[in-house]
Design a protein around this nucleic acid. Sequence first.
DNA 1: CTCGAATCGATATTTTTTTATCGATTTCTA
DNA 2: TAGAAATCGATAAAAAAATATCGATTCGAG
Lengths: 211, 211
Amino acid sequence: MEGRSAEISKAAFLRFPVYLRYLKAEEAAGVEYVSSSEIAEDMHLSAVCVRKDLALVASEPGKPRLGFAVKKLICDLERTLGYHRKTHACVVGAGRLGRAFLVYEGFEHYGIDVVAAFDISPAQVGALSGKPIYPMERLKEIAEREEVRLGILTVPGDAAQAACDAMVEAGITAILSFAPAYVRVPEGVTLRCEDLAASLASLISEAEENN
Amino acid sequence: MEGRSAEISKAAFLRFPVYLRYLKAEEAAGVEYVSSSEIAEDMHLSAVCVRKDLALVASEPGKPRLGFAVKKLICDLERTLGYHRKTHACVVGAGRLGRAFLVYEGFEHYGIDVVAAFDISPAQVGALSGKPIYPMERLKEIAEREEVRLGILTVPGDAAQAACDAMVEAGITAILSFAPAYVRVPEGVTLRCEDLAASLASLISEAEENN
DNA sequence: CTCGAATCGATATTTTTTTATCGATTTCTA
DNA sequence: TAGAAATCGATAAAAAAATATCGATTCGAG
């Protein structure tokens, strides 16, 4: 789209948010310049890897002996990651996890606005911290009206496929699923599954290897 | 540790939980045998990749013309992923997200037992669905008593480092952090950061590329 | 003002991961 | 019972990613 994006490797793209976090911590500590080697040491990466990654995003080259300007780098990373554009999102499944997402304020900095939640149970319908919770029947109507393109799926496993189908039907093109189930989506819809339990389990394996 | 584990590539290990999900769905649908090519097509992977992955975990070779026995494969995957052993976990930060983890029942199948939550605010102390919520001061005492090795960090960003330090001090060796902050851990402690907002944002980028 | 130390960025190499090719095996059908 | 179809598993090739090496640049100390 912007010419350069295709050149950024998938693995590097996953590291960008981590750099961003790190840099914001440095900025808060009053640091103005930071070098690849410093970042590498703190983040347990190779210095060359960091330099290559930063070269992909930095709008101006790093200065020898000094490194990169922290503030500038933060802007570049946020732009590359697309945090400047606004996207409307909704939560499907207003259980504990879904409600946590609905009211979480951290999404704003990432250009994401969670506008509503939906649930099949009338008991959940209402509002939370000013965010509305609608019955599932109104998903399509509201998603279209609010131009919701992103959906967060937090329903029980056995309801996942049906809920997912409803989201697709409502015009949602990107779905982040926390439902413990295998779901299918048609071509043109991007699905990512975050299996929190599996993620935890793999973390244990990793920790055991590290001893 | 078990001789073979070192040969399993990191990328493959990340695919295993997805296979497991898929296979369980197939099992539920009454399927007995499944071939690499079928899995590949459904999961949008290459058939060769699937075969190589399955060869890493399968205790018995697949049968030509039939494929792999679904039930057997599920067992093999669960064993490889370590879902058979029990690990005690705790939640640090009993906000909405933390409480969702505390009562989530899906961890059991993965060998994880969330035994308690901790929070700095006395208002949160109590219990939820039979799971106790203790004040932070008791973290070390209880973590040691219950042999908690895994911690789920769900505190606000500005409290993350302090909470993390307390977890390390309490003998926790693996930490899954959802706190929106960059935290440091000493050598020997495994940290994984799940940035939900960043994950969502990257999903948007991915979806836009797919158009 | 000059020298030295430390960083950057580019090129090259190694390692890892994914994909392709091919013969062997086995089940199903005729 | 015999042949065809489709899968497996192993070896080989290609692609991707991480790591190493080296000259060029520039800030800061003397």
